[in-house]
Amino acid sequence: MSEQQPSKAAPKPAAVMESQPWAGELPENLRTQFSEDVPETSQYAGQPYVVCKPDAAVAVLRYLKEREQFDALVDITAVDYPSREARFELIYIVYSHARNQRLRVKTSIGAASRPRTLTAVFTGANWLEREVYDMFGIVFDGHPGLHRILLPEEWTGFPLRKDSSILGMDQAWVKDNLGIESGQ
């Protein structure tokens, strides 16, 4: 990418992902079905992905499952971009056994928004959404039992947010539990 040359003078443009448009029947179908709810169908490194509006995510995934044979849920995760307006990017990965194809569905949500849960479409979304909640603090609306899964219930903060630091967590823990300054 551009930052290979250490040119101090010109401010380098913010690097973006160089994705290619994704052509084919499936992206066509998605665009006609959801029009502006699915603004982008692209691929990067040969892996297709779909960007959709937060409210449409569950509908898109339901459509993919029921009409386009994407019958297996692979993963749900999120990425935190604190500088963006819609801070979190929520990523659903689904797989179609019939097509032997994997597809990412991405949607950007703000810190305060509450996306719908996917558990009504895929039962397996239960723990995955709990983990996303645990790590990022994203609250899924309608989830059957949204509480922490990997961290203890009394934990404060959401560790995979970019603003929570490992060092800070360590120092806070040592201060609270041992009453001394952490030497880290």
Partner: peptide, 9 residues
Amino acid sequence: PPVGEAYVS
């Protein structure tokens, strides 16, 4: 790596 994302399994 350049800016981007990939899922490999």
